[in-house]
């Protein structure tokens, strides 16, 4: 393990509010012959909530996975707090500490309890003192309204509960940006609400969030800015009020008429 910092508070300098915290510039990505991202550019400022919407297969998930380096890109640049994600010399660990991701399928570790899931990364990776991490983890679990479920295993939690543990697990690394990849798509309708509520609270606390979602009502409510992608390009973007009522591009209008 490369010299792991004792705690990240030491080298932590807050990112200035005015510069974009995440910035994508002409991002291209293809799988074999199929180009899924054809020049995506967008900027996210600190504390902003961005929603990416669009039909299935429009490259939304790929886009979000590129931001924390899970999927490498072929062309263009992605910077997070000024750090180039596509740089082969990039220290992926330092990037991923800043960027948390929550997946559609939760992907909790099934052999660990909820609390252990949340504590694992800070203890193992950041080498923070266990007692301190445990305190923080318990606070996070209560923040996602799962007090009392600390010692329950993921297999015994509902989808919505698992997803909230997954959010707490990401937050335990104290990220500056949170990515949400269709986090409610695999959930039963009745548990969707509790997860959305958690995300809403997180956004209200000032967390920078990038969401891929199909929940239009939710996007309208929480987003500062909405991007509509189709066939690997950003077709249209704008503030929710203007976007939902006043879309200009026919593709956007057609999509909205289908989902609203």
């Amino acid at each position: 393990m490369p010299s792991a910092p004792k705690s990240r508070t030491g080298d932590y300098r807050p990112w200035p509010d005015d510069k974009p915290i995440v910035s994508l510039n002409d991002v291209h990505k293809s799988y074999g012959m199929v180009e899924v991202l054809k020049g995506i550019s967008l900027d996210v400022k600190k504390g902003e909530v961005i929603c990416i919407i669009g039909p299935s297969g429009s490259g939304k998930s790929t886009l979000i996975r590129c931001i924390n380096g899970l999927t490498p890109i072929q062309k263009g640049s992605i910077t997070v707090e000024g750090q180039e994600v596509n740089d082969p010399k990039l220290d992926k660990l330092s990037l991923r500490r800043k960027v948390g991701i929550v997946f559609q399928q939760f992907n909790l570790f099934p052999h660990k309890t909820a609390l252990q899931n949340v504590m694992m990364a800070p203890v193992l990776i950041l080498r923070e003192p266990k007692a301190e991490v445990e305190q923080r983890a318990r606070a996070l679990i209560s923040k996602v309204r799962l007090t009392g479920k600390e010692d329950v295993y993921p297999g015994h939690l509902s989808g919505g509960q698992q997803q909230r543990v997954a959010i707490a697990r990401s937050l335990a690394m104290r990220p500056d940006v949170m990515l949400f990849d269709e986090v409610t798509a695999a959930l039963d309708p009745e548990t969707v609400k509790e997860v959305l509520l958690t995300i809403k609270e997180l956004a209200a606390d000032g967390m920078t969030c990038i969401l891929v979602t199909h929940e239009m009502g939710f996007a309208r409510e929480v987003a500062d800015h909405i991007y509509f992608t189709d066939l690997g390009v950003i077709v249209e973007h704008g503030a929710p009020a203007q976007f939902f009522t006043n879309a200009k591009d026919p593709r956007t209008r057609q999509f909205l008429s289908q989902v609203l």
Binding site: M1, N68, L70, K92, L93, R96, R97, V99, G100, I101, F103, Q105, N107, L108, F109, P110, M120, A121, L124, I125, L126, A166, R169, S170, M173
Partner: peptide
Amino acid sequence: VPESTLEAAESLCFSRWQ
């Protein structure tokens, strides 16, 4: 072991060995 579970570990900064 699902690929996605390993991806979750990766995005939580686990090294390959971890």
